[in-house]
Design a protein around this nucleic acid. Sequence first.
DNA 1: TTACGCCTGGAG
DNA 2: CTCCAGGCGTAA
Length: 264
Amino acid sequence: MPELPEVEAAAIIARRTLVGRRLVAVTTHHAAQRRSLPPRHGARLAGLRIAAVERRGKSQLVHFSDGAVLLVHFRMNGDWEVVAEGAPAPAYTRVAFATDDGVRLCLVDPRALCTATYHAPGKPPRITLGPEPDQLTVTALRAALARRAGPIKPVLLDQKVVAGLGNIYAAEALWRARIDPRTPARDLSAPQLAALVKGIKAAIADGFARQGRYRAGTAGTAGTRAHAFKVYDREGLPCRRGCGAIARITQAGRSTYFCPTCQE
DNA sequence: TTACGCCTGGAG
DNA sequence: CTCCAGGCGTAA
């Protein structure tokens, strides 16, 4: 579940589970995560209190009392699961963070592509990201796209252009802005740039609205409702504006869904 | 720019 | 069996 809205919901869960608590143990359950977070790094976190959990783009930063930072990235399939004391770790748990109240925050990821990395006090990770969607302006987007000759959709996946967009929300934003994903990024007109900024914000806002699992007492909401994407994963289905069928093409090795009729 | 490695599971 | 998957770093 890993684009900006999903990561934000996850960060809220991590924040509620961790902040103010003391970490008592970190356990890695898979060789891939042992490479990104060697046991000796996890050991340095044990005993420390968690001061804050922050999200930047699709990254989560866990700040510790001594200034150390844990950088967690879900990649394709990562997610948090909160496990009560004594309960077994969920399937596909890759790293577990046990706190002093007995709860464990489990980093669950079937593909094990997720990463968690330790950053010593005074050496915070430097992540170069573009503006968050809610800070994005037409001026900033125009500047970011001015020299980009490639098609707009893969460019939107570049985190230095906008932070947090992934394959779903890039497609959703372009559909909302009625822009053909194959358009060279630097060729977007002024009205198209304005529409794209609006489209990005609307797509992300819609994503937030779909996140319900972090609200107290609503466990089980996630996944129950079928997704309500505008174009993503709708190949062959009618465009929601009543045009023809949604098409799927490959760009930069990834699927792009769009309406050939209303996106130009 | 595209291609591939990283990993594993699910769908057809 | 083959293909596909909400990401990203590196290589060619």
